[in-house]
Computed example of a mutant assay.
Amino acid sequence: MISQKAKYALRALVSLARTGRGETMMIGEISKEQSIPKKFLEQILLELKRAGYVASRRGRAGGYELLMAPERIMYGDVLRLIDGPIAPLPCLSKIAYRKCEDCREEASCEVRHVFERVTLATREVLDQTSLADSLRLEELPV
């Protein structure tokens, strides 16, 4: 399960992607549009700024803007930034691998085999879905 912080980060990025390239949004606008507590959003946007996803501008035309095209911002990258590895078991993590304490042998672990398939499928979707893709998906009928 993703954290509330990661969900808010993705929702804030989606709002900024809707505004268009070079356009800014004030933090209060994002907060209101996405129902994200303003103080929490400030922390999230600072983290996204440090990672190079957004920039902030001061003044009358100030606010936050995307630094990358929405097509280049992948859900998987944002989730890893905010929540860390995308893996339900530590033995399946690429960047934070750790052997499960209760496992005798990974190669024969039935639980690991099932969750390895889940992890690979999840990573594939998240690493191939951009903000732009998610904006197109909201236009499709359910």
Rank of each mutant, 00 (worst) to 15 (best):
M1F: 14
S3I: 06
Q4S: 09
Q4G: 07
K5F: 05
A6P: 04
A6E: 00
A9Q: 00
A9L: 02
L16I: 05
A17N: 04
G20F: 10
R21G: 08
G22H: 07
E23Y: 11
M25Q: 14
M25C: 15
E29K: 12
K32A: 11
I36A: 06
P37S: 06
P37V: 15
L41D: 02
I44N: 02
I44C: 10
L45R: 07
E47P: 07
R50V: 05
R50P: 01
A55R: 11
R58P: 09
G63N: 13
G63R: 05
E65T: 12
E65R: 14
L66A: 13
L66P: 02
L67E: 06
L67V: 14
L67T: 12
M68E: 04
P70F: 08
E71C: 07
D77L: 00
R80N: 07
R80P: 06
L81D: 03
L81C: 06
L81M: 05
D83L: 05
P85V: 02
P88M: 07
L89A: 10
P90Q: 04
I95L: 03
A96N: 04
K99E: 14
E101W: 14
E101H: 09
D102M: 04
D102A: 10
C103P: 10
R104K: 12
E106N: 09
A107P: 03
C109L: 11
E110R: 15
E110C: 03
V114F: 08
V118N: 00
L120M: 03
R123Q: 08
V125D: 00
L126K: 04
L126S: 02
D127F: 15
S130K: 02
L131I: 01
A132E: 11
D133S: 08
R136S: 14
L137W: 13
L140M: 11
P141E: 06
V142P: 15
V142G: 13
